[in-house]
Write a protein that binds this DNA or RNA. Structure first.
Lengths: 341, 341
DNA sequence: TTGTATGCGTTATCAG
DNA sequence: CTGATAACGCATACAA
């Protein structure tokens, strides 16, 4: 260590750097020497010695999805107060799924821990590899059951109920649900919540009004809209399994001259910032995504320090009423209202 | 090295791992031992020995800005084929500017090089620190002059001309320009381009139609729109200094019942994917953002291997005509047309 | 309080 | 072709 030329031993310098005790005079001298030499200690060597990597890995599907951006933001905030860096890896890069980079991280012990956002079935191999390498993992909003892993998720059932009750209170009786991927648990839970919420208002979710978009993407929403908006609408409100789908629907509605919410009310889930910017702005049930990012990071560090502590943390979603949901259209509304009474 | 228990020396194992020559029999044996022991070499130690960090730093203003997301995507693509990781740092995290993390990177030699996206004046200290630490830097689309630094930028002048000519060809005569931050060079160049483009079509950019939004953000666009849309519009087309501003304007236009492009045509710059999703979809002059990300990464590695090679790379922007620009409204168009002839 | 010695896991340089 | 051995730059027991 170059700074040892300040007249003392390496270990003393090390102690100085780490805030351990050194005599005031030596401290002053070292401070001066370090300043003069423009010295800075090696992050790499330090980590090697400490037996850690000094960075955590964050795995997302695609950073193009605003949902992941929010998670990332939360993680970065939490990381700001910690002596560790953020390594990023996208699973979907050039249109196809490629987890190889993550496997490299795990194999080479390149990170101290991993945060997995929105894990799906296809990511099982990653989970497996991490477990085998005894690498701490925390999963944020996984769309599947995950025992043996630290998990943060939202109460999607409750969220479904919130939006259903909101729509019912606006007078809607014929409410539709447009789901995400067929196998998605989140989508199922949200649907169940909607059904339950309507039931609480003594309304029934007509099975004929339960659709599927087959995916979570905005494109899937537009495709669904195109198939639906040709004929007269059999519903006065439609709940999409997430915001992206709803936004896709809005896009097509504009093209076709279908007015939202006058002709049909539209709602989503997630609470993406984008929803506040669309026209009309999107009514949604928001996840505290950023908080989840923050907490996931905090939990990961706890797991790194003390492995083995697995717990499930649940977050609540909150209704965010905006412009895309309005009172049921007078005509249809009245008729149906009477019919259901 | 544990695998040395396979009967050979440490150095042999190292050679094996790095693909250097080892006898076939030893190779087979080692492969077996490594498999059995579940061995994997330490990334940290490797980097320590090689005298490198094994990761590059990417500095963005905020990952919430879709522009940075595209750059990041490009970088990630390029990185996929390289043995290095991506460290991310946002300059604006909780509403305020905080470059401390980047300074840590530089001070602690935590990265092999840095990619700076959209550098501004306020980032000068970062540039300075990096230069002093002899850390390779490449700047992507900096909004200022940057000698002595590897720079990638777009021809904003030409871009302005492209959109101006497009609008002129649609019959627009009274074209307005709404700029970004007052000190922005990019904004100035785009304005100049628009002026020049109109001139080529024998049209004049009325100084009274040159506005400023004061910032690059979507919010600035909405604020500007609110101040403008109260009275009759003095223009038939308006060019915003970037897509975000234009999208903010569209939002307010919807609220006020101003039809785009029937009442006024709207255009932006950058080519954010978001622009294709809005209603109406946004006509814009697109930067090859993703390519720029890719190239910036490639150049950074070249600079790491062989420092000192500074060059300026220029990219061309391309016109992307979409729905937000249409022919000039019949009435106004005819009158003004005649008037200008 | 400070110095000494050892280890962290690799790579690179030499001999053999 | 392969085996020792010296770095790499730091942390930490232990000794002084």
């Amino acid at each position: 260590m170059v700074a040892a030329q300040g007249g003392v031993a390496v270990s003393t310098v090390s102690r100085f750097l780490n805030g351990h005790y050194v005599s005031p005079e030596v401290r002053a001298r070292l401070a001066h020497v370090i300043e003069t030499l423009g010295y800075s200690r090696s992050w790499t060597a330090r980590n090697l010695s400490l037996g850690r990597r000094g960075s955590i890995g964050v795995v997302v599907d695609s950073i193009e999805d605003p949902w992941f951006v929010q998670v990332l933001l939360g993680i970065e905030e939490e990381l700001a107060s910690r002596d560790s860096s953020l390594m990023l890896a996208s699973l979907e890069l050039l249109g196809r799924y490629d987890p190889s980079r993550v496997f490299e991280w795990i194999r080479d012990h390149r990170v101290d821990g991993v945060i997995l956002a929105k894990t799906q079935r296809r990511d099982r191999a990653i989970l497996h590899a991490a477990a085998q390498a005894r690498l701490p993992v925390v999963a944020v909003a996984p769309d599947e059951r995950l025992p043996d892993v630290q998990v943060l998720h939202c109460n999607n059932m409750e969220a479904g109920m919130l939006i259903a009750e909101h729509l019912a209170d606006l007078g809607h009786v014929r409410v539709a649900f447009a789901g995400g991927p067929a196998h998605s648990i989140d989508s199922k839970h949200r649907l169940r919540g909607v059904r339950e919420g309507l039931a609480r208002r003594r309304l029934r979710l007509d099975p004929a009004l339960v659709f599927s978009c087959g995916a979570w993407s905005l494109d899937a929403g537009t495709a669904f809209a195109q198939s639906l908006l040709g004929r007269p609408l059999p519903m006065t409100a439609i709940v999409f399994a997430n915001d992206a789908l709803a936004l896709g629907f809005l896009r097509v509605a504009h093209e076709r001259g279908v007015r939202v919410p006058q002709d049909v009310s539209v709602a989503g889930f997630d609470g993406l910032p984008l929803g506040a910017l669309s026209w009309p702005s999107l009514t949604t049930v928001a996840q505290p995504i950023r908080d989840m990012g923050r907490v996931s990071c905090r939990r990961l560090f706890e797991a790194i320090v003390q492995p083995g502590s697995v717990e499930q943390i649940q977050f609540r979603m909150t209704l965010v009423p905006r412009e895309s949901c309005g009172p049921v259209p007078a005509a249809a509304g009245t008729v149906l209202r009477l019919a259901s009474e």
